[in-house]
Amino acid sequence: MFQRLLRKLFTKRVQHYFFKQRLLFQYPDMTIYTSQRNMLQLFNNLHLPGHFSIIDTNVNMTQRERMGTSATRILSTPNAGGSSIYSEALSIELLSRLLGVDLYKTETELEYYYPEECDNGGSGPLMDYACHYVTREREIILGVSVTRAMAFNRNYTRQDAIALLRKKLNNIIASSSSIVNTKFDRHILHVWTESGKNAALIKRECKKLKGHLNFKDTIVLISIVNTDLVFFNNNHHLLINKVK
C-alpha cells in the first residue's frame, strides 16, 4: 500500500513538473515563451469542441521582425478603420509561428449581414481576420479578434479588464453570427499587454468566464510584448509623449 501511495505521489510530481516546463520558440527576430500546459490546452481546444481556454505567451522582440506572407498581407490590405493594423499583423505572425496557421480572410474580406431594422443602421462589430489551422483530419477555421489591454496616463485596472473582456467577447459572438461568407469552428480573442501585471488582471477575470456557455469554443490568448508599436502605431504623438 505504501509503495502504491509513493508511486501515486511521484506521478503527480512528475506531471506537475512536466506541465510547468517552459517552452521556448526562438527566431532571429523574436523569442516566444510559453509552457507545455499552455500548448496542450491550446491543442485540446482546437481539436475538441466546447472548451474555453486561457493561454499565456511572452513575446520578446529582439530586432525588427521579418513578417511572413500572412502578416504582410494584413499590412498591405486596407482595414475597416482604427489604428491597430500592426497589432493584427503581429497577431497572425505569432499564431503562424506557434501553430503554423495561414491567413484565410482579412477584415475587409469578411462579409456581414446586419439588418437595418435591428436599430444598428446595418452595421456592427467586426472580426479582425480569419485564419485556418490544418490537421490530418480537417481544416479548422479560426475567427480572431485582436485587442490591447492598456490605459493612457494611468494604471490599468480590474474594471478596465472587465470592460474589455465583456465588450470584446460579446463582439466576437455578434460578429461571428453575422458573417455570411465564413463559418468559424473556434474563436480567438488575442489580448496584447505591456506588462505582466496587466496580463494577470486579464487572466484573473478570464477565469471567471470559464463556465459561460456563450464563450465555449473560445481561446483567450494573452501576450506580453516588448514593442511600443503594438500599442502606439498610427498614434505617433502618444508614442512621443510616452518616451518623454
Rank of each mutant, 00 (worst) to 15 (best):
T147F: 03
D128H: 00
L90F: 14
M150R: 12
A130H: 01
E137G: 13
E205D: 13
I202E: 02
V101G: 00
Q159L: 11
L169F: 12
I202V: 05
W192Y: 06
C118W: 15
Y114Q: 07
N155S: 12
L201R: 09
A89C: 03
W192V: 01
S91P: 01
R138W: 04
I141G: 00
I222G: 07
R138I: 00
S177F: 13
H212M: 13
A163N: 12
A163P: 07
G196T: 14
Y114D: 06
H132Q: 08
A130K: 04
I224N: 14
K168C: 08
Y112I: 09
L95S: 01
I173K: 15
R148E: 06
L209S: 02
R138K: 11
L189K: 09
V144Y: 02
V134L: 11
F215K: 04
L103G: 01
N214P: 09
R97H: 08
N214F: 10
A200K: 03
F152P: 11
N120S: 15
G122F: 14
E116N: 13
A200L: 04
V220H: 05
S175H: 07
Y114M: 06
T157K: 02
K183Y: 10
I224G: 11
I202M: 02
G100Y: 05
Y156W: 06
S195Y: 05
T218W: 07
L142R: 02
K216V: 13
N214Q: 11
N155V: 11
S178H: 08
E194L: 11
Y156D: 05
A149C: 00
A163S: 13
N181H: 10
E111Y: 08
I173F: 15
S195N: 08
G122Y: 13
E194P: 09
I140K: 00
F215T: 06
G100A: 08
L126T: 14
L142Y: 01
K183N: 11
A199L: 03
Q159E: 13
R158T: 05
A174C: 10
W192D: 00
K197M: 09
Y156A: 04
K203S: 09
